[in-house]
Amino acid sequence: MKRFALWAPLAIFALLFAVVASGLFRPAEKVVRSAMVGKPLPDFALPAMVPGKPGLTSASFRQGRPRLLNVFASWCIPCIAEAPQLMRLKAMGVPIDAIAIRDTAPAIGGFLRRNGDPYERIGSDRASQVQLALGSSGVPETFVIDGRGIVVKQIIGDIRPENVADIVQAVKDAR
């Protein structure tokens, strides 16, 4: 018993050391997922981002058909990387709307000219307030919204070619 009492502090120190060291060598790179998955899309109404394309309201996600909601920006480099995948999804008949974060009409216009325009509507979120309401923590992010306006899936980061099939499936399942 005495022996145990003698070594216990060292053992506790070693344990603590191991915990701290493991945190040091394997830093937590945490992706913050939205807690809105499974919940209704928050109400919002965003003005049009570019001339000739309507703005975006939450009501347009309650019309019986699943849609993608893409959160993007002209100043976001991974958004360029995912553009071909969005164009493919559009070609496969998946309707896509977007929220442009803290952007300007000329910058978005240029982005769409360079990278293609898969969007039916683009809302302008000038102060990221709708992005925060969605529980989105960066760009790009994509949400699958079912026909009743419920968020069913969140894709964090750029959509890779290998993610496209999953997204099409999620859209089908949301029907």
């Binding site: 480099i77 990221s128 960066g138 760009v139």
Partner: peptide
């Protein structure tokens, strides 16, 4: 994010 909105710099 915008930091995140941040972007991994590929290079």
């Amino acid at each position: 994010m915008r930091g995140a909105n941040q972007v991994p710099l590929p290079l």
